[in-house]
Design a protein around this nucleic acid. Sequence first.
DNA 1: CCAATATAATTGCAAATGAAACTAATGCTC
DNA 2: GAGCATTAGTTTCATTTGCAATTATATTGG
Lengths: 150, 150
Amino acid sequence: MKPSGTVLAAWRLLLESHRRLASQMDHDLREAHDLPLDWYDVLHQLNTSGGRLRMHELSAATLFSRTDCTRLVDRMAAAGLVERERASEDRRGVYAVLTPAGKDRLRAAAGSHLDDIQRLFGDHLRAEEIAALESGLARVVNAAENLAAT
Amino acid sequence: MKPSGTVLAAWRLLLESHRRLASQMDHDLREAHDLPLDWYDVLHQLNTSGGRLRMHELSAATLFSRTDCTRLVDRMAAAGLVERERASEDRRGVYAVLTPAGKDRLRAAAGSHLDDIQRLFGDHLRAEEIAALESGLARVVNAAENLAAT
DNA sequence: CCAATATAATTGCAAATGAAACTAATGCTC
DNA sequence: GAGCATTAGTTTCATTTGCAATTATATTGG
């Protein structure tokens, strides 16, 4: 089935808002905290998962490829924000572990980044639009997850 | 001001739905038509603009950087989908022009791509959610545009 | 009118990316 | 418990990207 004009318009707006906001936020984070948005994402995911994740869990959480995670962790480890730790229960495995410095850096950046989310995104939406985004996109994401799991 | 939990959730869902759907759609387009999503985007924008755009207009329409446009057009010209044409009214300028082959390729790919948009996105949204996405994100994009224009 | 400045597009270089090959350890089956 | 398939993670290679510098043309202020 073909999408209606409104579905198409909504999809294009989602694409455009993502591109504009993501690049603006990346720019702001680099400017203010010398932290790429990708790094912020990794720090955030680690932090909300108790500070340690296996590489493949990090990949699933951030939606970066395994390859990408390997190299993000490389660079972030060089910058002292995370550490690698071999898994004791599975000797193939590696944990990415948030360091205290990484936690500090995240805390420092979180304030202005959250402000950015509000300023660039939240400020322009009505409560019922936010609710609609949340419920609708949750279903979209869910369906995509199931598809990917196949 | 800090975003409320629902704003934050909505933002994260927007990020996640974009990543999942864009990569799925890119994959499907390559699979079925050997056409990266970026190329589709360029063909689409050219087509909806009468088949010819100055490089900087293409950049504004697609939100790819000027550099990126130069090189996308390079590769697509090598594949015969577009042509470069020096602008007669401004000799610095270059038009990217859709070729008949490019138009054909777009037409061929559009069908399955539109199906994808419906299947992955539209099918999971209620009419009022689509309307909310459309109106809300239009305001978000607008605000971001004005900011960028500064 | 012409020097200074701005704009259009490309290019060189360093960094980031993705797919597929590779290494190592585990699990599964007979 | 030996062999085969699977899973975890990294690495290699070719491609892509982004920033800053470059080239060429247009515009503007004195």
